[in-house]
Simulated assay, not measured.
Amino acid sequence: MTDTAIPTTVLTFRDAVAADLPVLTALYETSGIDTPGFNQPSTVAAAWTRLMQQPGVRVRVAEADGQALGTLTLFVLPLLAHNGQAAALVEDVAVHPSAQGSGVGRALMDDAMALASAAGCYKLALSSNQRRTAAHAFYEHLGFERHGVSFVVPLQETSDAA
């Protein structure tokens, strides 16, 4: 990914494919989700094959002029509570720094909300690391409300925390 000006053409959205993995990991690292060099190609490829091809999992890519500018992962979770209505969860929202503030993040979230709604989800939730205050303001601007309390227990040692 190059640090060029934001393309002026229309954004398009699509599901990611395995060939997108280098671009996706670059987006995670340049946006601050992961530290540079954290993602190992073989580990990411194995996770893609093992986990990200499951029903209800969609890794979305926003692009313009063939350049990936942002991504997120949408999970549709089947539930028995809430009269059997599914819920949706968004994780790993990443927008390239050159495209931040241009509407890419908003468009990605609108895409996720539309997909979740079409899947019959009664809510769309996300969590965000406490240190990402700019992201919190962004989500609140989109209409998200702080809800409940989030708890995390590390299950394996890692140098990055979600």
Rank of each mutant, 00 (worst) to 15 (best):
D92I: 09
D92W: 07
V93G: 09
V95Y: 02
V95T: 15
V95Q: 14
V95E: 02
H96R: 12
H96F: 07
H96P: 04
P97N: 13
P97Q: 10
P97W: 08
P97E: 15
S98N: 13
S98C: 10
S98V: 09
S98Y: 06
A99M: 12
A99R: 06
A99H: 12
A99W: 11
A99E: 15
Q100S: 08
Q100V: 15
G101H: 06
S102C: 14
G103K: 03
G103R: 03
G105H: 03
G105E: 06
G105K: 03
A107W: 04
A107L: 11
A107P: 11
A107N: 11
L108Q: 12
L108A: 12
M109Q: 01
M109L: 13
M109G: 00
M109R: 01
D110L: 09
D110N: 13
D110V: 10
D110Y: 03
D111M: 03
D111W: 04
D111H: 12
D111P: 10
A112L: 05
A112P: 08
M113E: 15
M113F: 02
M113R: 10
A114C: 08
A114M: 09
A114N: 12
L115Q: 15
L115A: 15
L115H: 13
L115Y: 05
A116K: 04
A116L: 07
S117E: 13
S117Y: 04
S117C: 08
A118Y: 02
A118M: 11
A118T: 13
A118D: 14
G120K: 06
G120R: 05
G120M: 07
G120F: 06
Y122D: 09
Y122R: 13
K123G: 01
L124F: 00
L124H: 00
A125E: 14
A125I: 09
A125D: 13
A125K: 10
A125V: 11
L126N: 00
L126A: 01
S127I: 12
S127L: 13
S127G: 03
S127Q: 14
N129C: 00
N129W: 00
N129E: 07
